[in-house]
Computed example of a mutant assay.
Amino acid sequence: MNTTEKQKLSVLIITFNEERYIKSLLEDVDFADEIIVVDSYSTDSTIKIVQSFPNVTLIEKKFVDYTSQRNFAIDQAKNDWILFIDADERLTPELKTEIISTIHNKDAVSAYLVYRIFMFKNSKLRFSGWQTDKIFRLFNKTYCRYTEDRMVHEKLIVNGKIGILKNKIIHFSYTSYQEYKLKMYKYGILKANEKVKKGQKPVRILLIFHPLYTFLYQYLIRLGFLDGINGIIICYLNAYSIYIRYKEFFRLTSSKI
């Protein structure tokens, strides 16, 4: 991937009812050569806010699952270098500088993982499994595509070398108990449908064992107890999502719990 040409960056964002975050994010990524928002027909002020930015392209597309929405967004980008960012994520000035220098580096690799700082309301969650959280956010679309066998917690398939950026993204994922619980519920439903799509068979014992294991692993092994009450809440809600996954999986396969 050696090149001396000036590289341009496309920022991609998928949204649904993100009026709380989208204005700050669009201001945050104004250094990009192209910004595309793929919205799933938001019912709040998201669309109005996006349209107030003349340098942002808005595309509306019905949501099916996260993977298809992300791959669709990639196909709309004019540039090879993609920064895929969620509405509740923020870039530090140091990370912006690193991104720009990285894509202009003649030895740049195909994709870069970025570590994330998980924010529980206004405080940093230090443990509970999030201390090593990293995700693909910067990549060259020529060599990358999201695998279609996942509907949520998307997996990027990378053809080539993988790097890791030094600076971290700030992830404002948790703003309230009910909002995060709803998010975990939706993830659980999508993961259940993913299992059905793959033709998997339900195993009754996993309905109890897997959520319990998830809570104990994150709370004890991944040191969630060091996050105090916040750790209990996050570990419980992550286990709750696993429970919803299997409950819905049994319902979809017409099995009695």
Rank of each mutant, 00 (worst) to 15 (best):
L182I: 05
L182H: 10
L182F: 11
L182Q: 08
L182N: 11
L182Y: 07
K183C: 00
K183I: 00
M184E: 15
M184Q: 14
M184G: 01
M184P: 08
M184D: 07
Y185I: 01
Y185N: 10
Y185R: 14
Y185H: 10
Y185P: 08
Y185C: 00
K186G: 00
K186D: 12
K186N: 05
Y187M: 09
Y187G: 09
Y187H: 13
Y187R: 10
Y187E: 11
Y187K: 01
G188P: 08
G188C: 13
G188M: 07
I189M: 09
I189W: 05
I189G: 05
I189K: 11
I189N: 09
I189C: 06
I189R: 11
L190N: 06
L190C: 01
L190W: 00
L190F: 08
L190H: 03
L190P: 00
K191G: 05
K191E: 08
A192P: 15
A192T: 14
A192S: 13
A192N: 08
A192Y: 13
N193E: 14
N193W: 13
E194V: 04
E194R: 02
K195G: 10
K195E: 14
K195L: 12
V196N: 04
V196L: 04
K197A: 02
K197D: 02
K197M: 07
K198C: 03
K198V: 02
G199W: 11
G199I: 12
G199L: 06
Q200W: 13
Q200H: 15
K201T: 14
K201D: 04
K201Q: 12
P202D: 09
P202G: 07
P202I: 04
V203L: 10
V203F: 06
V203N: 10
V203T: 06
V203Y: 13
R204A: 06
R204V: 05
R204C: 00
I205Y: 11
I205T: 05
I205W: 12
I205N: 05
L206I: 09
L206P: 03
L206S: 01
L206W: 09
L206N: 14
L207V: 15
L207Y: 12
L207I: 15
L207S: 14
L207E: 06
I208K: 08
I208E: 05
I208L: 15
I208W: 14
I208G: 11
F209W: 13
F209N: 07
F209V: 14
H210D: 12
P211G: 07
P211L: 09
